[in-house]
């Protein structure tokens, strides 16, 4: 059962506050890069290397800003990476406690079924392509819905507003074109 927006909004706002009170604002999308770095470094140990001052990488993106991403790849047990793993654990336990997502929802969301019928392969292809575009965009923007939109606008940062304007300017027309039936 979904929480009423008043309770849910207060709870979510409190979590964002707790994060900035105790550590730093919440962000997620960087960790996709860190996981890529971990995978890449397993295949090719030359990808991330230790230097006298810290870490660097043969990949210009991992090496940027004094090798801060390279450092996280070399030390995956850091705050931000563990945070995302903990998010998954929290969502898993929360879903379990409410009885889990129904079987048909796990396979296909109702909104997809209403618009495109029982076409799971097509849905997975769209989810894959959507994921590609989301993360490419998030890295270009330097953050995602969590880091830019929520944490950013909460801190009154200009970039958060620019990001949110772009995200909704694209998301609303695309959703209206793709999902005409309400489901």
């Amino acid at each position: 059962m979904t929480l009423n927006w008043r309770a849910g909004g207060l709870l979510l706002g409190f979590v964002f506050f707790l994060a900035v009170l105790l550590v730093k604002p919440i962000g997620v999308s960087t960790q996709f890069v860190i996981l890529n770095g971990l995978i890449g470094d397993t295949v090719n140990a030359e990808l991330v290397t230790k230097t006298e001052e810290g870490y660097t990488s043969t990949n210009a993106y991992l090496a940027k800003s004094g090798g801060k991403y390279a450092k996280s790849v070399a030390n995956p047990l850091n705050y931000s990476f563990v945070f995302v793993l903990a998010m998954m654990a929290g969502a898993f336990l929360s879903a379990l406690a409410r009885g889990g997502a129904p079987r048909d929802e796990r396979k296909l969301p109702a909104i997809w079924y209403a618009n495109y019928g029982d076409t799971p392969m097509k849905r997975y292809a769209v989810a894959f392509l959507g994921g590609f575009i989301v993360l490419y965009g998030a890295r270009l923007a330097g953050g995602c819905t969590s880091g830019h939109m929520m944490s950013g606008m909460m801190q009154t940062s200009l970039s958060g507003y620019i990001f949110a304007a772009g995200a909704f300017a694209a998301a609303i027309p695309v959703a209206m074109m793709m999902y005409r039936k309400e489901g």
Partner: peptide
């Protein structure tokens, strides 16, 4: 940031998911 926002919004609408 704006271009990336447009891209993220497109994929968000398609998939119904953002990174988190």
């Amino acid at each position: 940031v704006f271009i990336g926002g447009l891209l993220l919004g497109t994929g968000w609408a398609m998939a119904g998911y953002c990174p988190g």
